[in-house]
């Protein structure tokens, strides 16, 4: 696969797994959009990828362009999730529902 032409969105880009994957993709010239909750951490991850030659890009503009031509989005890496407290989850259906929502369906919301 020619990764250079790939346009990739990473959700949960602050996680270690996302970071390692993004470094591999960036080194091969992919265009990346990083999405996460903590802007400072995303900036740190982005600066690292920029140094590794992943072109600097405004994530918002880039994402809008991808949405506009949705066919242009090639890969979406979902790299976030929570473990939760097992005992509490077994006892409390609403906590379990929240966790399932966070881990399995939130990306599509």
């Amino acid at each position: 696969m020619n990764i250079e032409s790939e346009r990739i969105v990473i959700l949960g880009a602050g996680s270690a797994i996302a970071r390692a994957t993004a470094r591999l993709w960036a080194a091969r010239g992919a265009r990346l959009v990083l999405v996460g909750r903590d802007q400072d951490r995303l900036n740190a991850v982005a600066a690292d990828l920029v140094a590794l030659d992943c072109a600097s890009a405004d994530a918002g503009v880039e994402l809008a362009k991808m949405v506009e031509t949705l066919g242009g989005l090639d890969i979406l890496l979902l790299a976030y999730g929570v473990l939760g407290d097992q005992t509490e989850l077994e006892r409390d259906p609403s906590a379990a529902a929240t966790l399932i929502q966070t881990n399995f369906t939130s990306a599509a919301a």
């Binding site: 270690a16 740190a44 991850v45 600066a47 690292d48 140094a51 590794l52």
Partner: peptide, 9 residues
């Protein structure tokens, strides 16, 4: 070892 990012070059 987890703080190993490049900041600028």
């Amino acid at each position: 070892s987890g703080l190993d990012r490049f900041i600028a070059f």
